[in-house]
Design a protein around this nucleic acid. Structure first.
Lengths: 253, 253
DNA sequence: AATATTAAAACATCTGATCTTTTAATATTT
DNA sequence: AAATATTAAAAGATCAGATGTTTTAATATT
């Protein structure tokens, strides 16, 4: 008949409450820091049991919209959704989509070269100093382990933060987090580490010279090199298990 | 002391259970479709009350990782996280970050011109036909209303889907959804509508000629034009309120 | 003035009962 | 035999109320 109806689920009390409160937040009737009534009072207000209301609070908390504190002057407070909440959500999503390394690389090649173009014009001496220290730390890191990825994330995060675009910051950070979290691959060999450092150095050099084109090309090369490295050394790399231990990755398929 | 400790929250039973189950999913010990024990059984297994376990299930459901069905052969089933869940999370996040139109435009100018470059090589006659029909529908739309944005989203979504990059699809869709959901701006004037259609036509023409450079430039122009249009007509545009009604936007600040 | 104690508010958890939904199994009808 | 209606059981949804734990403001003590 050309018209598609959507499936409807029976309304759960807690879901109904969740939607009302989220709606009030999006409609700006509730602001950050506002306190909701206590479980007992609000349950009575809605005419539902405490458990139903508690489930609603749990869900809103999971959305990152609520902070619940125990104790005397505790309660439920409207909270700004933080980056971690969204990143976790993206990680969950990517876990099932399971994109290939190519897909991660592609989005990075779209964004990050353009980011450093902007950086080349805006960057300050303090920023340069920060990036140089980051590279130094990475070089001095004795045998890699997972610190490399933290430093790597920090390097790219710094650049994207200079661009002052909150959306792009979120994307770049999440893509990198997802890549590391999902693949759980950390490259520990000297050669890979050196390649990353060299790439970062070239980028910083171009930025120091305020050369957008050179910086952009250096970033593009760097991303592609890292991809090549990840593809090639897949078998030889280490993966981090859920328990935090390191074990040899035998490569998939 | 140079070392930063992170704050720790007292462990809640439900949170502990959530982490265990999410961990098992990420560790691939639980797969899509797997059924978890019933509330009663699992609560007993963990040695906790049913309410605590229920709260854990609610949270996992909010994460999009669980589907809970009532009835005889119901129960809790591991579910693939769907796009809606992540988009909602992004919408929540952007609501507080409240990025400017410039930030939305910028990320689009980074990604979409490159997307159509790829499309120019991959696109099929069916795809072209789809896009042409989309433009026709938009032209025939009598007086805009919110259908325009649905068609606009569909147009850009189609292009990004051709690139077969799940990450980029998610980003482009979410950015557009967030822009419309948060700003709640719909342009109803004839002039704006015509400008969008013309932009889309130029893009499709370039794609039909398999001209990546021309397509990419047409997309870049289109995005920038739309931004200009949104900025300029901010006062004259309509906004959709929470209740779905349309009212005149008087412009902010 | 500093410190220790106490009390109350609010969340956290538990127990156990009852209601509702869904479906598999059974019974009935055609 | 096939279609339809009924029934029973499994599992979640909701409720009520009791008890435990955390946090902090108020009070008492040193």
């Amino acid at each position: 008949m050309g018209f598609k109806f959507e499936t409807v689920k029976a309304n759960r009390i807690s879901q109904n409450i969740v939607e009302q409160i989220r709606g009030a937040i999006l409609a700006k009737e509730l602001k950050i820091g506002d306190q909701l009534p206590s479980e007992k009072d609000f349950a009575k207000h809605f005419g539902v049991s405490k458990s139903s209301l508690r489930e609603a609070y749990r869900v809103l908390e999971a959305y990152g919209l609520l902070e619940i504190r125990q104790g005397m002057s505790g309660g439920a407070f409207i909270k700004e959704v933080d980056l971690t909440t969204v990143k976790d959500s993206l990680v969950n999503y990517f876990f099932f989509q399971n994109p290939g390394i190519r897909e991660y690389t592609q989005i990075r090649t779209f964004i990050e070269p353009q980011i450093v173009k902007i950086c080349a014009e805006k960057i300050t001496v303090e920023d340069i100093e920060y990036l140089e220290n980051n590279i130094l730390a990475m070089e001095q890191e004795p045998d890699g382990k997972h610190f490399i990825s933290d430093l790597d994330i920090a390097f790219h995060k710094k650049l994207v933060d200079i661009s002052k675009n909150k959306i792009i910051s979120l994307i770049v950070e999440s893509v990198q987090a997802a890549l590391i979290n999902i693949k759980r691959i950390v490259h520990t060999d000297e050669q890979f580490l050196k390649m990353v450092c060299d790439g970062h150095k070239k980028i910083v050099n171009a930025l120091r010279e305020s050369d957008p084109k050179k910086a952009s090309e250096a970033m593009l090369d760097h991303i592609n090199e890292v991809e090549k490295g990840m593809m090639a050394s897949k078998k030889g790399s280490m993966i981090i298990t859920e328990k935090g231990l390191l074990k040899q990755d035998r490569g998939s398929k």
